[in-house]
Design a protein around this nucleic acid. Structure first.
Lengths: 235, 235
DNA sequence: ACAAAAGTGTTGTATTTACACCCATGA
DNA sequence: TCATGGGTGTAAATACAACACTTTTGT
C-alpha cells in the first residue's frame, strides 16, 4: 500500500498542512439598517485597514467552535446563531502566509453589546451600504454571507435574533427589508407572516412608533414547525 | 504588537496547521437515475468501505484547483462544472489524524468515462437510492451536495452538463426528476422551460424514444441571461 | 388500428402584488 | 383635527397544478 496506487492518499505526512482561519461576518441591526462589525487590522500588512474579526482554528476544536469562540472574544456574546458560509482558499489571498479561511456569519443584537470591549479594539459598526473596502477577500465574504442570509430569510423566519424578545410586525418587516434590501408592502407582509401561524400575539402594545400603538408578538419556534412552513417571501 | 492585544492573531507561527482535504461528490446521470461515483477505501482504517474520491490541498493550489485535479485524476475529465458544498471540520471526523475536508460536487456525463480507469481502482456508480453507507461524514457530504444541487436547479437550468449536446425536453425533464427526486408533469414542465426562452430548438428529431419523434434542443447560456431567468421550478 | 410519447389547450386554485380604506390617538 | 402608522379588505395579475385532448408514426 502506498500513495501512488491509490486515489485516496494513504499517508498524511507527505502532504502540506495549512493554517485554517475563521472570519466572522457579524450582522447587527439598528435603526432599520443592517450593520456589520468591522475591526481595524492591527498589524502589517494592511495595518489599519478594515477587516472582519477572525482567528485560527485550533487542534481540538471544530470551525463552528472556533467561530463561536471568536465571536465570544470579540463581542462577549455566547449562544449566538452562526452559520458557515464558504471556504476561501486562494493560495495568495493573504500576502504573508498561505491561510485557508472559513467564513461564518452571525446575527446579534446591537443593544446587547459591551461597547467598551469594542472600543478597546477600535471596532465599529458600518451599514452595509456605507462600508469601507475590506482587506483580502473579506468583501466577498460579506457578499456571500448576505446572500445566504437572504436565502434563509425566504424560507424561515430568520433574524428574530436581531430583535427584542417582543416585537411588532412593523419591526419585523423593517428587519426583513434590511435583510432583503428591498421594500415590502406592509399589509401583505403582515398577512403573510400571520398566515404562517408561528407568532404568538401578546396583549401588550408598543406605543413608541405610532400613536395607535401596535401589538407585540413573540416567536417560540417548535422544532417541528421550523421546517414545515414553506416559503415566507418569494425569492 | 503581540497576539494578546489583538483580536486578529498577529503571528501565524503559534497556530496549528491542518491537513486540508477535498472530497468530491461526483454526480453522473444514466437511465433516468442520478448516480454517484464511489471508491473502496484502499487502506486502514475502514479499508474496503465506500468513500468519496478525495485528496489533499497542496501549497500552491486553491481548493477549487485541488477539486479539479482530483476529478481529473479519478475520472480523466477536465473542465467539469464543480461547486463547493461546505467545510467539514469536526476534529474527530477521521480517526487517524485531524483532517479538515472541503466537500465539492461535480456533474459529469456517464458516457464520457474511461471505464478502465474506474475499474483500476474498483470504483463504481451507485444510484442515490441504493447507496452503501459511506465512511466518516461522507454521507452527510452527499446529502448537502444534493440539497445544493436541488436548490440551484430551482433557479438555473442546471445539469445540462449531464445530457448530450442536443437533448429533448423529455430527457431534460427526466433529469430534473432525478435531481429533484419527484415527478414533474410533462406538459407543465415543457411550457415552463420553453417560456424561459433560453433553449434553442434544432430541426433534428430524436426518434429513439418515441414513434413520433421529439425535437432536439440545445442550451447556450448568455452570461447575461443566466441570472435573469427567475425561478424555474417551485422549491 | 393502436399504443405511446410529443405536444397543445383548458380550467381551477394558490400566491403575489397593488392599493384603497378604516382605525386609533398623540401632538 | 389631522398626520401617522396600525390593521383589514378587495381585486387584478401571475404562477402552479391537474388533466383532457390532439398529433404523429412504428409496429
Amino acid at each position: 500500500m502506498n500513495a501512488t496506487n491509490s486515489i485516496l492518499s494513504t499517508t498524511y505526512g507527505e502532504h502540506p498542512r495549512h493554517y485554517v482561519a475563521v472570519d466572522c461576518v457579524i450582522f447587527g441591526y439598528d435603526d432599520g439598517k443592517l450593520k456589520l462589525l468591522l475591526y481595524p487590522r492591527s498589524f502589517e500588512p494592511s495595518k489599519g485597514d478594515w477587516s472582519l474579526p477572525g482567528g485560527f482554528v485550533q487542534d481540538n476544536e471544530s470551525s463552528d467552535q472556533a467561530a463561536a469562540r471568536i465571536l465570544e472574544k470579540t463581542t462577549g456574546l455566547e449562544d449566538v446563531f452562526m452559520e458557515q458560509v464558504a471556504a476561501f482558499t486562494d493560495p495568495n489571498r493573504e500576502q504573508t502566509a498561505r491561510v485557508i479561511s472559513l467564513a461564518y456569519y452571525a446575527l446579534v443584537r446591537l443593544d446587547k453589546f459591551d461597547e467598551n470591549r469594542l472600543k478597546e479594539h477600535g471596532a465599529s459598526w458600518y451599514t452595509l451600504t456605507n462600508m469601507p473596502d475590506l482587506i483580502f477577500d473579506h468583501g466577498e465574504m460579506v457578499e456571500k454571507a448576505l446572500a445566504k442570509l437572504q436565502y434563509k430569510a425566504g424560507f424561515q423566519l430568520v433574524g428574530v435574533e436581531l430583535l427584542p424578545e417582543m416585537f411588532t410586525l412593523t419591526q419585523l418587516r423593517r428587519l426583513y427589508e434590511a435583510i432583503l434590501q428591498r421594500e415590502l408592502d406592509p399589509g401583505n407582509f403582515r398577512k403573510k407572516i400571520l398566515s404562517l401561524g408561528i407568532l404568538q400575539k401578546s396583549n401588550k402594545k408598543d406605543s413608541t412608533e405610532s400613536k395607535k400603538g401596535a401589538y407585540f408578538y413573540t416567536y417560540h419556534p417548535d422544532d417541528v414547525q421550523e421546517k414545515e412552513i414553506g416559503r415566507i417571501i418569494k425569492i
